[in-house]
């Protein structure tokens, strides 16, 4: 089980990488679903990753802030399904570009790693 923990803990380097992954998940979620509030994003990530990824939902908010400061997403106030005031996030043009670039990078990495896993010992002889 993968656990994304407190970002200011001692395992800073590791969480940085994981936070990057989390950011990518946020971007993809918003790409697919359009405008969404924080809870919705968290639920969606949970649903898709199933039980493989348990996120402390609170961890999401610093990531959202970082993405917003970078200009990848934008936010505005709106009303949630139970008619409460909620903050809705949506992808910006910059964010879409970033998502495309990172998707490509991720696919390449996955392909390379996949090829390494496919190789058997006799293939190298």
């Amino acid at each position: 089980m993968l656990r994304v923990g407190n970002p200011i803990g001692d395992m800073k380097e590791k969480t940085d990488v994981l936070q990057g992954t989390l950011a990518l998940m946020v971007l993809k979620t918003l790409d697919v679903l359009g405008s969404l509030h924080g809870y919705g994003i968290a639920r969606r990530i949970e649903q898709i990753s199933g039980d493989l990824l348990t996120v402390n939902q609170g961890t999401l908010y610093p990531v959202l802030l970082k993405l917003e400061q970078e200009g990848s997403i934008a936010s505005e106030w709106g009303a949630s399904e139970n008619n409460r005031k909620a903050r809705f996030y949506r992808l910006t043009r910059d964010g879409r570009k970033q998502l495309r670039a990172e998707t490509r990078g991720w696919e390449q990495t996955a392909a390379i790693i996949g090829r390494f896993f496919a190789v058997k010992a006799e293939d190298l002889e």
């Binding site: 970002p7 402390n56 609170g58 908010y61 802030l65 400061q69």
Partner: peptide, 17 residues
């Protein structure tokens, strides 16, 4: 429980902010 430690998260948020 699911949300996690609120204060720690706030601190993380402030650091990012």
């Amino acid at each position: 429980l699911k949300f996690g430690a609120v204060e720690a998260m706030k601190e993380g948020y402030r650091d990012e902010r």
